[in-house]
Simulated assay, not measured.
Amino acid sequence: MARIALAEPPYEPSIAAELARIMPPGVPPLALFRTMARSPRVFAKMFAGGLLDKGPLSLRHREIVIDRTTARLGCEYEWGVHVAFFAERAGFSAEQVSSTAVGTADAACWAPDEQALLALVDDLVDQRAISEATWSRLAAHFDDAQLLEAISLVGYYHTISFLCVGLELPPESYAARFPATQS
Rank of each mutant, 00 (worst) to 15 (best):
S58E: 07
L6K: 06
V97N: 01
L73N: 09
P10W: 06
T134M: 03
I151V: 15
G55R: 14
L138T: 08
R41H: 12
L6V: 10
V81D: 00
F162N: 09
Y156P: 01
A129H: 10
D123N: 14
D143W: 07
T100E: 03
L120N: 04
L32D: 00
P179T: 14
T159V: 15
F178Y: 09
S98E: 15
A94H: 02
L57S: 08
L117P: 05
T70Q: 10
W79F: 13
L51E: 04
R34N: 02
M23P: 01
G91H: 03
L147P: 01
E18M: 10
P112G: 07
F162P: 00
R38Q: 15
S99H: 07
A48I: 02
A140Q: 09
I130N: 05
S183F: 13
A176N: 01
T100Q: 05
S183R: 15
A107K: 08
W135G: 00
P28W: 01
P171L: 14
A44E: 13
A44I: 04
D113W: 00
A94N: 00
S99I: 04
A119R: 14
S93P: 10
R128I: 03
K54D: 14
Y156S: 11
E88C: 00
I4P: 08
P56C: 04
Q115Y: 00
A139L: 04
A150Y: 09
P170N: 04
G26M: 06
P179D: 13
Q127I: 03
K45Y: 09
R38M: 11
R41Y: 07
P25S: 08
D53E: 13
F43V: 08
A2F: 00
R3E: 06
E78N: 03
P56A: 15
E149A: 12
S161D: 10
Y156W: 13
I64Y: 06
V154K: 12
P24N: 01
I15V: 15
A20E: 13
L19K: 03
F43W: 07
Q182I: 02
V102S: 08
V83W: 03
E149T: 12
L32N: 00
L169A: 01
A129S: 11
